[in-house]
Nucleic acid binder design. Structure first.
Lengths: 334, 334
DNA sequence: GTTGCCAATGTAAGCGCTTGCATCTAGACT
DNA sequence: AGTCTAGATGCAAGCGCTTACATTGGCAAC
């Protein structure tokens, strides 16, 4: 046997100090109304005196309620998903849950191992927000009995619960907007990945169905940056492109596009319109302010938390797929 | 008693399937070289057949090694600390550790509760990166036996281990640079918080000691945004300010400052220099490119992971405070 | 053929909690 | 006074692992 876990005394120590049984101390934390005021007081004092902090591992093991939720995202930096994670964490923290982060990175082999290590902690729920997982990992999740929530998309074959929106619909909406404002020659600076692909497809299809020429596409490793936007626009224009609208796969790259156009003395939106994606904090402050697509990441996080909580309370969920939609914010850039 | 934990079979089930004892299966996962090739093979098959995933809760409880590390940050969005967390996670994941996120938010009362819930999971280490914790929370941590690593700063009274740099020194370095390039009338668009305060102080002190007038300061709720930068500059100039250098507490606000100056037809750096903080990905792509302060967040994350791993291996740490320094990147904006 | 040793396994006692069930103590009622 | 009930507490059996210690078998050395 090893040294006891660091950080503190045990339930039993508290029980002895308060001269009650350990079950009573456990109830003090979990079902306080079961205790008489006198006992409550005694236990409270002992807990404070010893600086006792319950061991959630032991508790989780005994009760099979770990109060743990894992959010899986591709990478933490510059993430659109920040607001979702934040909302999720805030909502769940209020209920005593902790949120673990699973960063899968780009490598699929890692994703597999990561999923195992996640399942190993027996979280009560897993929120998938960026990545498309390899099939083996998906199978593992499906077979795991854990509540799985896929977000930021509407997968064709959901694992379990879904809170998202249709990327194809976003593409179509952008096309509708472009055509309605008289644009036809589109340049698309897109990210790699299946979601950007869906937006691109929805956009191109809708454009072409209404007689516009097929958009020119440049793709960049996700997530797209300011630099990508500048570079893409520069390259396209130098290559003789004559777009009247530039569709970017993030507000960052749209920002870069805007700056590159200004540098070249091209007026936005008079000569070329620019559209972003994400409606990040700076979008409305740019000059011209950026037309973009808003997704309410907070709502995604909240609904996901909601789903989870309902599941853990054993309620059944009638409508396992929630489409939270999106909004095209028309601003100065087009 | 309750239903067993979701997600799978137990060590015992695997042991039965492989016709070995549960200890052997445990060794299969933890000390594989102790097993004979034949046994290894048998166990491997049973594990695969049953899709068994070890329960890390039970393992952690039994071994007092949770392989868990918690990173405490104020909020996930737009965080400078992203690279640190990423590096930390990557480094630790390779060793079988998981990283939990603790988001303290702005509220100090929450921080207290959050810390308790973190300690409750018995992580082997806690990385503090954004927030200054309330004293009670600090005391709890100090008394907890858990390895604590404070980052992104050099606290006067460290709890335990430290990987950071001196914000005051950053301020002084900016001042030295400003004076060396002939700037004296500074406007500082700063964030709230003790670190921005230290930078401000270091800057102002160094400026004044060399005969420059006291800088004008405007502060904004942290983290400072593009909008803050624009607004601060606009307000300062409209109020009759005649700075020859604008010092911003983030690259985001510096970016806003740059755009606002351009809008007003003020040339950078000829008339006014602009300096940021953080050297975010877009800093070198702006026009003019942004002079700013680089901190290597990756290195912080790696060193922190290193500290942790060494602690868990029982090595003693001779030099518990690491100053990783910073670099002033001189670019086009001043 | 013994003896000794070591590598490979098994046995079983926890790790620190939760919780079904048993027990006890006070009223409340008859 | 006697019976019931229900609220408050205690008892003890796990939860699924790890690991100190005991046991076994095979082989080199004598």
């Amino acid at each position: 046997m090893r040294a006891p876990l660091p950080a503190g005394s045990t339930l039993d120590a508290v029980a002895r100090a308060a001269e009650v049984s350990s079950a009573t101390v456990s109830r003090f934390f979990n079902t306080p109304k079961m205790l008489s005021p006198r006992t409550t007081q005694r236990v409270r004092e002992a807990v404070e005196r010893l600086g006792y902090v319950p061991n959630l591992l032991a508790g989780g093991l005994a009760s099979s309620r770990t109060r743990l939720v894992t959010a899986v995202i591709p990478e933490i930096s510059r993430s659109l998903f920040a607001s979702t994670i934040q909302a999720l964490t805030d909502t769940l923290a209020a209920k005593g849950y902790s949120v673990m982060l699973g960063l899968t990175g780009a490598h699929e082999e890692h994703a597999e191992r990561e999923i195992l290590s996640i399942i190993g902690r027996r979280p009560e729920g897993i929120i998938l927000t960026g990545p498309t997982l390899p099939p083996e990992a998906r199978r593992r999740l499906k077979g795991s009995d854990i509540t799985i929530i896929e977000t930021w998309d509407l997968p064709a074959e959901p694992i379990d619960l879904v809170v998202g929106f249709s990327h194809e619909a976003v593409g179509r909406a952008i096309a509708a907007h472009a055509l309605a404002t008289g644009r036809r020659r589109a340049f698309v600076a897109s990210a790699t990945g299946v979601r950007a692909l869906a937006r691109r497809y929805g956009f191109a299809k809708a454009m072409m169905e209404r007689g516009a020429p097929e958009p020119t596409v440049a793709t960049f490793e996700s997530p797209t940056t300011y630099r990508h936007g500048r570079a893409a626009v520069a390259a396209h224009l130098e290559g003789g492109g004559k777009p009247d609208i530039i569709v970017c796969s993030s507000d960052w790259s749209a920002h870069g596009a805007l700056d590159e156009l200004r540098r070249r003395g091209i007026r936005v939106p008079e000569e070329i319109a620019v559209i972003g994606f994400g409606d990040l904090d700076f979008a409305s402050d740019l000059e011209p302010s950026l037309t973009t697509v808003t997704i309410d990441g907070n709502v995604i996080g909240q609904k996901a938390a909601d789903f989870l909580l309902r599941r853990t309370q054993g309620q059944r969920i009638d409508n396992p797929v929630v489409d939270i939609g999106f909004k095209l914010m028309r601003r100065g850039s087009g």
